[in-house]
């Protein structure tokens, strides 16, 4: 048998896992494709209903329409959340494959996040096209900035996903806590209610949340003159991205055998 370089082995593993995950994710049940699109649409509809019928039409946003603003925020948050949640289950779901020593737990997380990002980006494009047809002002004003913020949220999901997947493999309770946190995080990240609406003394705490930074920069990419908190800073988000990816990879290297054995 020919000896392969480590990089060739890794590439072969990523390719094999990607094909398998892609089939499992999109073909697993006949409605998989439908729900991928229907879930954000339904969520947006419910939120618009809550906003307009229950809360009334008070003006909360400057230089951005509510519906496109909400869609951008939700899709950005879903991108982060799904990357984190899919990573959480990745190691366990692929535990049968660690019989092949070429496959490492970290590969399952990396491949899942890549696939998730591709799917979510595709859905974003569909939303932008649909929004264009419905005249929703969903075309980004600053396309490059929007794309960069999108990739940043994706990488943040990957970094946090790497960390929590390793920790949850060591301490099962971490998984439960992460699942519990996913909904409050949506509120705290200013997805549904704008961060500018929060009382002044709370704003420094909101600015500690890197997701809020990512989502607000994404919105600034879509709506150039949108007014947000002055402390929004992409660099802060990148500190988190680099820190969490480094920590996650370290944990996966250190505890590789423990994760395989679970």
């Amino acid at each position: 048998m020919k000896k392969r370089t480590p990089w060739q082995v890794t590439r072969a593993v990523w390719y094999a896992m990607f094909m398998r995950e892609a089939v499992a994710r999109t073909m697993a049940d006949r409605m998989a494709w439908f729900w991928m699109l229907a879930e954000p649409i339904l969520f947006v509809s419910i939120m618009i209903f809550v906003r307009t019928v229950i809360l009334g039409r008070s003006r909360m946003l400057y230089n951005a329409d509510f519906v496109p603003w909400l869609i951008v925020g939700l899709l950005g948050f879903f991108l982060f959340r799904e990357n984190m949640m899919r990573s959480l289950g990745a190691v366990e779901a692929n535990s049968g494959l660690f019989a092949y020593r070429q496959v490492k737990p970290v590969d399952s997380v990396l491949v899942r996040c890549f696939l998730e990002g591709v799917l979510k980006s595709f859905i974003l494009v569909l939303f932008i096209l649909g929004g264009y047809l419905l005249d929703l002002k969903l075309i980004p004003d600053l396309a490059l900035e929007a794309m960069f913020a999108w990739v940043s949220l994706w990488l943040l999901g990957l970094g946090i996903g790497l960390v929590v997947s390793a920790l949850a493999g060591l301490v099962a309770e971490v998984g439960i806590i992460v699942k519990l946190l996913s909904f409050p995080l949506m509120i705290l990240s200013g997805v549904i209610l704008p961060v500018t609406m929060l009382p002044h003394f709370l704003q420094p705490y909101v600015l500690m949340n890197p997701i809020a930074h990512g989502i607000e920069v994404l919105r600034l990419g879509f709506f150039e003159h949108y007014v947000t908190l002055p402390g929004i800073n992409l660099l802060y988000l990148w500190y988190w991205i680099i820190g969490s990816i480094a920590l996650g990879l370290l944990l996966h290297i250190r505890f590789e055998m423990r994760l395989k054995a679970q």
Binding site: Q8, A12, A16, M19, R20, L97, Q102
Partner: peptide, 12 residues
Amino acid sequence: RQNVKFVARVMG
């Protein structure tokens, strides 16, 4: 078949 394909891909 899918499982076999997976292993074949891993092995390069």
